[in-house]
Amino acid sequence: MTEAILTAEGVSKDFPLPRSLSDRLAGRPARAVHALSGVTLEVRRGETLGIVGESGCGKSTLARCLVRLHEVDGGRVTYGGTDVATLTGAERRAFNRRVQMIFQDPYGSLNPRMTVRQILAEALSVHRMVPTARIPDRIAELLALVRLPSDAADRHPHAFSGGQRQRIGIARALSVEPEVLVADELVSALDVSVQAQVVNLLLELQERLRLTVVFVAHDLRLVRHISHRVAVMYLGKVVEVAPTATLFDDPRHPYTQALLHAAPSLDPGSRSRRAAARGELPSPIAPPPGCPFNTRCPHAFDRCPAEVPFLTSRGPDHVAACHLAAPRFESAR
């Protein structure tokens, strides 16, 4: 088995909510969004790990914790065995270089006043990737790598389409020769035909550059297509992790099962008229006690609201956090 390069160990992250004066006077306790509660996950060298879940499940927060854009409140994130929170100075810069994040919004993450050349040159010079004289050559190489025309270098981000902007974001991330790319909803904002181009590019670059990729997305089809392993999150917890084929063929957590059934299939022949899951996502401000899915789970029994299930083995490399070993999918009602 390949080594873990980046790990989350019992990571928790809360975002405190503003407290009004009347809350304070009434002595109401401070409230917080519990974005992550006790997430343990490893990213292995050379793999693509998909992280899926619905809004509010904490997948983006986890991505940001992995690259240390957020400091964790509990647990730790390690890179090559070292707690990243302890890194300072040159070590921290080295970590920032080797673990790169690409954002969902290609409009918001590129400086509109800089040309593509300036954007890439900045990354190259900050991390002293190549001698100054070599920078123009390296920019040309990077643009070719992400298949942008060479005359793209002297244009501003607004002159590009969404897919091209996402390529600029990828080029910037790759300019510093990272080991790990953390892609948060990389293609969600793009049209389907353009999504496929970016996905193909990512697959190709990963093979060529031997990158490790963390692919955070809500689109199950995309995650299935790209990932070697998939982690499913719900309300700040990882509920199931397995190799992609195992997860999609033999999901063991009732939430994973509901999610897979709810995703519209591309086969007009396989239709169901019953909803896959009942109820709504609970608020991450006050997640239900016990198993976070117990309020919507068709199998819930007295143990579920009382006791938090931990991730336990369901087969080779397959873990799920459910009190039942092998629940069978049931649609709502």
Binding site: E54, L259, H261, A262, R273, A275, A276, A277, A332
Partner: peptide
């Protein structure tokens, strides 16, 4: 979200 989309379409 996908589980809610599924409910609304149905």
């Amino acid at each position: 979200d996908v589980t809610i989309q599924d409910q609304i379409l149905k």
